[in-house]
């Protein structure tokens, strides 16, 4: 069993480290700093931490102003409020002017759990991906989150990073050299490819092990960068394995599955099965119960692989 780390914990820790290294880094939150883990930074650097109160729209535009004034702002809240409520502020104050602001949204997806569908963002990747100038990231685990946060701090431009609430297995147990726009092949395979993001990557690795027992060789590609997408890696997988299963803790519309299908339909069409929320909102429940209920377990990925292989 691999080590379990919540990506938000990794974020909070990394942010506090970055605060020591670069005094231009400032952090904003909207009354959720205990949950998003930005409170760690706030405790160490109170003069560079701005609580906006429960006012996400103002938080995002203030972050834009701080960037215009020469700072490197990180702004955090839950994904549903960042990409949803403050969408137009992200569009006008960040994406349109290419403002150097990092929106790091925690509590993405259904594993928010008991708070229910009102708090489970299943559409944020699709919304953010559609914005010109935006970079959209969705790390798989703790180590990748740490590396991704360091990469975005060094990158000049607006970025949306989606993180989760619960602890997730460490996938990058040998460290992670995160490069924006580059995917990672975590397991070689020749019969089909899982292309996954966020916590679904760990599920895909489990599914690939199950398939191996059935003599099916499954490749696993993790895309921590949803935009820009590693087009070459996706096309290579299509050419070499001829069948793709995408998986994300997000709607099957417009997120990773949508992005991969866009690339394949223009570049190298092969059968694809998309695993994700089937155009529905979530509901209250425990995280693992919800993953099972909405079809996001290794067993579901195995079934999807079998379906896609029949279409090959």
């Amino acid at each position: 069993m691999s080590e379990m780390i919540a990506t938000r914990d990794s974020y909070g820790k990394t942010l506090a480290e970055l605060g020591k290294e670069n005094d231009k880094i400032v952090v904003l939150d909207a009354d959720l700093s205990g949950s998003t883990k930005t409170a760690l930074f706030g405790k160490e650097f109170p003069e560079r931490f701005f609580n906006a109160g429960i006012a996400e729209c103002n938080m995002v535009s203030m972050a834009a102003g701080l960037a215009a004034g020469g700072m490197i702002p990180f702004a955090s809240t839950f994904a549903v409020f960042a990409a949803g409520r403050a969408f137009e502020q992200i569009r006008q104050s960040l994406a349109y002017p290419k403002m150097n602001v990092k929106v790091v949204a925690t509590h993405g997806g259904i594993t928010v759990g008991e708070d229910g569908g009102s708090h489970q963002s299943v559409e944020d990747l699709a919304i953010m991906r559609s914005l010109p100038n935006m970079t959209v990231l969705c790390p798989a685990d703790g180590p990748e989150t740490a590396a991704a946060i360091r990469a975005v701090a060094a990158f000049d431009g607006p970025v949306y990073v989606r993180l989760g609430r619960g602890k997730v297995p460490v996938v990058f147990d040998n460290g992670c050299d995160f490069v924006i726009g580059r995917g990672a092949t975590l397991r070689g395979g020749s019969d089909m490819t899982f292309i996954t993001t966020g916590l679904m990557t760990a599920q895909a690795l489990e599914a690939a092990a199950i398939l191996e027992a059935e003599d099916i060789s499954a490749r696993v590609i993790h895309l921590g960068s949803i935009k820009p997408l590693d087009v070459d890696l996706v096309l290579q997988a299509a050419r070499e394995t001829g069948a793709i299963v995408t998986a994300e803790e997000h709607s099957v519309i417009g997120g990773l599955g949508g992005a991969v299908c866009e690339v394949l339909s223009e570049g190298f069409p092969v059968p694809v099965e998309r695993v994700g929320l089937r155009d529905v909102f979530g509901q209250s429940g425990k995280a693992d119960e919800l993953l099972a209920h909405y079809g996001l377990t290794p067993a579901h990925l195995v079934e999807a692989a079998e379906r896609v292989l029949k279409r090959k």
Binding site: V26, E47, R48, F50, C57, N58, V60, S61, M62, A63, A64, G65, L66, A67, A68, G69, G70, M71, P73, E88, Q89, Q92, S93, Y96, P97, K98
Partner: peptide, 30 residues
Amino acid sequence: MNKTPGVEVCTGSLGQGLSQAVGIAMASRL
């Protein structure tokens, strides 16, 4: 701001300019 010399931020969608001005004032003070 990216097209016209002297323009500090992008505005036009009402209400967002003041928030950005607040952010700039925070940055100046820091």
